[in-house]
């Protein structure tokens, strides 16, 4: 009996330790509506809401960490934080280095945006894209001239300044910039389907965390709360799950 109690106490103790462990959520904070830093200086956006909810379901304690996009994978594998939740498409190349949970956002076609005065042919000209994105590799192989930028915002600034003819990025990110540009910017050409769905990046050795987040994502898909979040942050979208 005594041994049993000690065993139970040991289990209780070790579970408290796992629960007290904080999961550090890495994000870029520069890609609205997925993630951005609001005026209060906090991480905000679709992925903030989603991440907090997933942690709540999986009973994890989570904190948010900002990291530049171009070093976001190296800093995950070296252990600075435990997840990448930054609008990252699940791709073959990335999957060789890190693991992904199942998708929490369906594959979203990318779109070109140029100045309103431009015509269709600009998509074969100089195209701005963010370094290390699926869009950058698409442009590089499409025959157009690629100019890369460290942050998503700079890609749009490059179109405005005339440095690039058009920018290729996720449709949802570009949408508000076009709407609020007062006619300066417009979508151009057809949408391009690149990249798979968006998932949470996890270290390959972190199978336990991956399983927890996967079941939390599934729970949010089946009770409709993920759909509600997508409709809230991406206006005009249909519920995908």
């Amino acid at each position: 009996m005594k041994r049993l109690l000690i065993g139970a106490a040991a289990i209780a103790f070790s579970t408290t330790i796992t629960f007290a462990d904080v999961v550090r959520m890495g994000t870029e904070g520069a890609y609205p509506p997925y993630n951005f830093i609001n005026d209060a200086g906090e991480v905000d956006g679709f992925e903030r809401d989603l991440g907090d909810k997933l942690c709540e379901i999986a009973e994890l304690e989570c904190t948010w960490v900002k990291n530049d996009w171009d070093s976001i994978i190296p800093n995950l594998v070296s252990g600075n934080y435990d997840t990448i939740i930054a609008g990252m498409s699940i791709t073959e190349e990335r999957d060789q280095v890190i693991d992904f949970t199942e998708e929490y956002f369906p594959a979203d076609p990318s779109a070109y945006v140029s100045l309103s005065s431009a015509d269709e042919s600009v998509i074969n000209g100089v195209i701005a894209a963010q370094t290390g994105t699926v869009q950058a590799s698409y442009v590089a192989s499409s025959g157009a001239t690629l100019v890369e930028f460290k942050t998503p915002d700079e890609t749009i600034a490059a179109v405005r300044s005339g440095e690039a003819d058009a920018v290729l990025a996720d449709d949802a990110f570009l949408k508000k910039f076009v709407e609020e540009s007062g006619g300066e910017l417009k979508f151009v050409g057809a949408k391009v389907p690149i990249g798979g769905g968006i998932g949470i990046g996890i270290r390959e050795t972190d199978g336990e965390l991956k399983a927890k987040l996967n079941s939390a994502i599934q729970a949010m898909k089946s009770d409709g709360s993920l759909n509600a979040l997508i409709v809230k942050w991406f206006d005009g979208r249909d519920a995908p799950y």
């Binding site: 520069a30 609205p32 509506p33 951005f36 830093i37 609001n38 005026d39 905000d44 956006g45 942050t151 915002d153 700079e154 749009i156 600034a157 405005r160 508000k176 910039f177 709407e179 609020e180």
Partner: peptide, 21 residues
């Protein structure tokens, strides 16, 4: 300077402005 200066859309920010970098 980069983070504050970049274009802020009214959809997500309280103080929207153009490219102020």
């Amino acid at each position: 300077a980069g983070a504050l200066g970049k274009t802020k859309t009214a959809a997500y920010f309280d103080y929207p402005h153009g490219d102020w970098r």
